[in-house]
């Protein structure tokens, strides 16, 4: 139950601020329980740094249940570490071996500037949602929930896409730093559901334009995003975005 204990070398990106130049620092960590989560291992590192009078490593985290999308980290070159369908906060140290060196980097993308150490600014995602990732319905304006039936399988498809946690792993893992998986998940959810249909044309065109403006790369269909996505969003959503985009650009009246 107490598990084995690991001795690790951590190679962590340290950067004092957005404008500062950063670099890697190596830290030795001893006696890491295999039952710890990856973030708890970083907590231990930070307590050790605190004891040594150094500044702890800054990293984003909040719910530690794999849902809020706050945590990030490129772990040995893989977004959220080696396990599929898992966020960093749900990754446990039993995935590592005694004596391992673990390289920890922040998400790297022009649209996600580093704020400090492993913390990046993902507000680009907010601006993409602002550009059209919603249904324009004011509070109080809604018809009865059952007024428009939604076939069960479509609802499931929409839910698959809606499960996106907005962590940015798709961008981080993509060799082009493309945000297509994120954008397509929201476009898909709202294109599938009848509630989102009235705005589908304008939505896809605006969200793609915003995505480009934020400086994300283009999609080369390598599917690395799907493999890295902790919510296991499928690239079939990207195909749906492309369809929506084609339709909108050929027919829309704007």
């Amino acid at each position: 139950m107490s598990g084995e204990l690991l001795n690790l070398t951590l190679r962590v990106w340290r950067q004092a601020g957005p404008a500062a130049s950063g670099g890697f620092r190596d830290y030795q960590l001893r006696g890491v329980s295999t039952h710890m989560s990856f973030l708890e291992m970083l907590d231990v590192l930070n307590e050790q740094l605190h004891q040594a009078g150094e500044e702890p490593v800054a990293f984003d985290h909040d719910c530690r249940e794999g849902l809020c999308g706050s945590c990030s980290l490129m772990i040995n070159g893989q977004a959220h570490g080696p396990e599929r369908g898992t966020t960093t906060c749900q990754l446990h140290m039993r995935r590592f071996r005694d004596g391992d060196t673990i390289v920890i980097e922040p998400w790297r993308a022009t649209a996600f500037p580093v704020l400090r150490d492993l913390v990046v600014d993902r507000s680009a995602f907010d601006r993409i949602i602002q550009s059209g990732g919603y249904v324009s319905v004011n509070t109080g304006n809604a018809p009865d929930g059952n007024a428009i039936p939604v076939p069960g399988h479509l609802q499931e498809l929409a839910m698959d896409a809606a499960a996106c946690i907005g962590c940015g792993a798709c961008v981080a893992a993509c060799k082009n730093a493309s945000a297509m998986l994120f954008v397509s998940a929201k476009v898909s959810q709202l294109a599938i559901l009848p509630q989102g249909r009235p705005e589908r044309n304008a939505r896809v065109v605006r969200m793609v334009a915003q995505m480009d403006q934020e400086g994300f790369g283009s999609c080369t269909n390598t599917s690395e995003c799907e493999a890295a996505c902790p919510a296991e969003i499928s690239v079939s959503n990207i195909a749906r975005l492309n369809r929506e985009y084609l339709r909108a650009s050929m027919t829309a009246e704007f």
Partner: peptide, 11 residues
């Protein structure tokens, strides 16, 4: 309200 916003409640 939530249905109208596109919340994919189970059906």
């Amino acid at each position: 309200q939530c249905v109208a916003q596109g919340v994919p409640f189970a059906r």
